[in-house]
Design a protein around this nucleic acid. Sequence first.
DNA 1: CCTGGTACCTACTCGCGAGTAAGACTACTG
DNA 2: CAGTAGTCTTACTCGCGAGTAGGTACCAGG
Lengths: 215, 215
Amino acid sequence: MRTEGRAKRLPRAVRERQIMDAAVDVFSRLGFHAASMDEISEVAGISKPMLYAYLGSKEELFAICIRREATRMMEAIATGVEPDQEPDVQLWSGLRAFFGFVGENRASWLVLHRQASTQGGPFAVELTDMRSRAVSLVAALLTQSTKAPATVLEAESLAAALVGAGESLAEWWLDHPEEPAGVVAARLMNLVWMGFGDLVEGNVWHPPSRRQVSG
Amino acid sequence: MRTEGRAKRLPRAVRERQIMDAAVDVFSRLGFHAASMDEISEVAGISKPMLYAYLGSKEELFAICIRREATRMMEAIATGVEPDQEPDVQLWSGLRAFFGFVGENRASWLVLHRQASTQGGPFAVELTDMRSRAVSLVAALLTQSTKAPATVLEAESLAAALVGAGESLAEWWLDHPEEPAGVVAARLMNLVWMGFGDLVEGNVWHPPSRRQVSG
DNA sequence: CCTGGTACCTACTCGCGAGTAAGACTACTG
DNA sequence: CAGTAGTCTTACTCGCGAGTAGGTACCAGG
C-alpha cells in the first residue's frame, strides 16, 4: 500500500525481485496497456523512478516478466517429463506438470497467456517462442510415435490444437478452482488420447500406475 | 485515407455500417487500448465527432462490434449444423462452419478471440456469453450422446477444451493460410473424435459421404 | 567529520488520445 | 428564397500516464 514516506533501504537484487513480482501481479490483473507504472511502483512499495533506474522502460519490464515466467513454466514441465517413455505416459506427465504449474501460479499464467499473446510488440517474440517450443515438443512426440504417414503440417497443427486445448482448459479451470489439478489433467488426457468417439462408448484411458496393477 | 476535406453526404445507416467495418478492422489490428478513435474515424473516412454522434463512446463502439461479429459467427455455425443427426456428424458440420467463417472473416475472428477476451471491461460479458453458448452446445452434444455416466463439470470442461482447441487451431491457421478450411477442420475432427491413441495406430475418422459410399 | 556512492524521493514535463463546443455545408419542404 | 433538420467539420479541453530532473536519506571508508 505504501502510505508511509520512505521505503526501507534494500540491496538492488532484492528490490528487483520485488518489482518483478509486483509487475507480474499488476500485468496479470490489468493487461499491458491498462497497467500503469505508477501502480506497479505502488504495489512494489517504492517510487516510480526506481523502476526506471532498475528495470528500464515499461516494455522492457514487461518483456522481462514474460521471459522469467515462461522460463519457470517450461522448466516445471521439462522437469516433470521423462523422455524414453511411452508416448502416452510422456503426454500424461507433461499435462500433469502443466496444470500443476498453472494451479500454483495463476498470475504467471495470466500474464503469459492472456496479456502477452495480445500485445503485438517485442513481447510476441518471447511468447511465440515459448509457445512454439511447447508445440514442437508435442509435435515431435506425435511424429516419432505414429505409424501412419503424417506430414509436418499435420503434426504441427494437431500439436497446436492440443496446446490450445490445454490453454483453454486451464482458463476454464480458473473459474472452477475446486477441481483438483490431476482431475482436470486426466480429462484432457482422455479427450486427446481416446477421443470423444471412445469416451462416448465409455472407454477411458488409465494412468500407468493402474496399468501396472492390472498387468 | 481521407486526405480530402469533406466527406460525401450519406444516410446515417450507411455511415454506421462503414464506421463499424472500420472499427472491426482497426480493433483487430491493434487491440482495444492501442486503437484510437482518430484512426478509426480516419479509416472510416469521416471525422471523429461523427463516431461519437452515431456510435457513442469507444467502449460502446467496441461492444457493438463484438456483438455484431459474434452474432454473425454463431449464425454461420447454427446454419451449418443439422440437429437430430449423429453426434459425430453434428460436430463435423459445426467444425466446418466454424473454420469456414474464420477463413472468410479474419478480422472478425481476431476481434472476437484475441482482443475481446483480454479486456476486462463490459466486453467480457458479451464475449463470455457467446463462448459459453458454444461450450454449452458442445457439452449438450456430448452429454446427450454418451453412454458413460458423466458429471456436468466433466462435460463442460471437455467442451471448453474442445472449443479452445478450435480457437487455437484457428489461430495456427492464420499463420498457414495455404491449408484449405476443410483439411484443418478434418484434422481437429480426427483429434477430438478418434484421439491420439487411434491416430497413432493409423485409424482415422471419415466424413459421412464416404461412410455412405462404403455402407 | 567529510566524501563518495548507492538507495530512494518529490515534483515536475510532455505527448497522446478520449471526448466536446460551436459552427458550416447540404438538401428537402413550403 | 427562408426555414429547418440532419450531415459533417475544425479546433479545441483536459486528464492520464510514460518518462525525467534534481534533489534527500543512509551507509561505507578515510
